[in-house]
Computed example of a mutant assay.
Amino acid sequence: MTTAKPGARDGRVLVVGGYGAVGTTVTSTLAGWLPNRVLPAGRSAARARQDGGVRVDVADPDGFRQVLDRLGDVTAVVLCVEPSDTGLARACLERGIHLVDIGATRRLLDGVAELHDVAAAAGATAVLSVGVAPGLTNLLARRAHDAVGGAERLDLAVFLGSGERHGGDAVRWTVQGLAEPLTARPLRTVLPGYGARTVHPFPFSDQHTLRRTLGVPEATTRLCLDSRPLTAALFALRRAGLLRAVRRPVARRMLIEAFRRVHIGGDGFAVRADAWRGDRHAAYALTGHAQSRVTGLAAAYVARELLTGAPPPGVHHIEQLPMLAGLPEALAEHGVTLHRPGGWGQE
């Protein structure tokens, strides 16, 4: 993962949200593989001038189209922020520009998936569910699903370090998720390096995606933070219905600001996928540090594979592309550890 592969498709890569917590990693990593071919983009004109990037506002799809047309040689776009609709994705795919999307909102992912025929007609490939969760969770679920010969049930667990400083989109998404109604029961599971934890149902998009892409009847993703007291307090408030107030803008802004200020714990993360078919069971896990950094590394790796491989045109989630199945191993040089079945078990 240190150099570009031979035969890399020409053109530049535009990293939208390239100055944020994830985007800076995407930009710096891709720049090491593809010198002079990576452009960061964001809302700040001053930052764009300083870093040799371009100004892009995701709330202005028409302006984004103008940027693409003015640059003229953009081959791939990595979308590190969530727009309000699918306008940016459509602008890329209509022009035959590859797209890597780290978004995690189900509504937006489903909307981009509907552009499959648009992308295929233009010879472009979009990869969705790129990051840690969704992303690495999808890939682990695929492995576990295949290991049992087709899962009847998937249980995904996400453990996040509450001491890490996450980007604004990630914080907003988490706060909104706390207001969603409960859909399943909590579960005790064992996470390598962190022991037994109680994980709570949370509206990650992977559980919905995997039901469709893998044909699994039942899939649930659950969350816990490394701070046990903070996890217990948050989900107790949720069960009591006291977090529904965050649906109101003022209350939502207050909780987002509180999350940005509270940094209890470390920056370690873990994800685990369990697949069940009758009495057959398989489980895989990944551990690492700095979830935002690893999300950026995953997005950079996917973008490079699109530029140097032969991806099928259309819109695909990460677990649907065999060319990306080795991502967990590829991230090992960045401190991400793949844990195969055995030894750490299920409570």
Rank of each mutant, 00 (worst) to 15 (best):
A8F: 08
V13L: 14
G17S: 02
G18E: 07
G20A: 01
G20Q: 05
T25Q: 11
L30G: 01
G42V: 08
R43W: 13
A48W: 13
Q50N: 04
G52Y: 10
V54C: 08
V54I: 15
G63L: 02
G63T: 00
L71F: 09
L88W: 10
T105I: 12
L108Y: 14
V112S: 02
S129M: 11
A141L: 12
V148L: 09
L160W: 10
E164N: 01
R172N: 11
W173F: 10
T174D: 05
L178A: 01
A179T: 01
P186N: 01
L191P: 02
G193E: 06
G195D: 11
T198F: 10
H200I: 05
F202D: 05
R211W: 08
L214Y: 09
G215D: 11
E218W: 10
L223G: 00
F235L: 08
R238M: 10
R238T: 05
L243F: 11
R253P: 03
E257N: 09
R261C: 06
H263T: 08
D274K: 04
A275D: 13
A282N: 03
G288F: 08
A290G: 12
Q291K: 05
Y301A: 14
G309N: 00
A310D: 14
Q320L: 07
L321C: 07
E333L: 12
G335P: 13
G343W: 12
W344C: 03
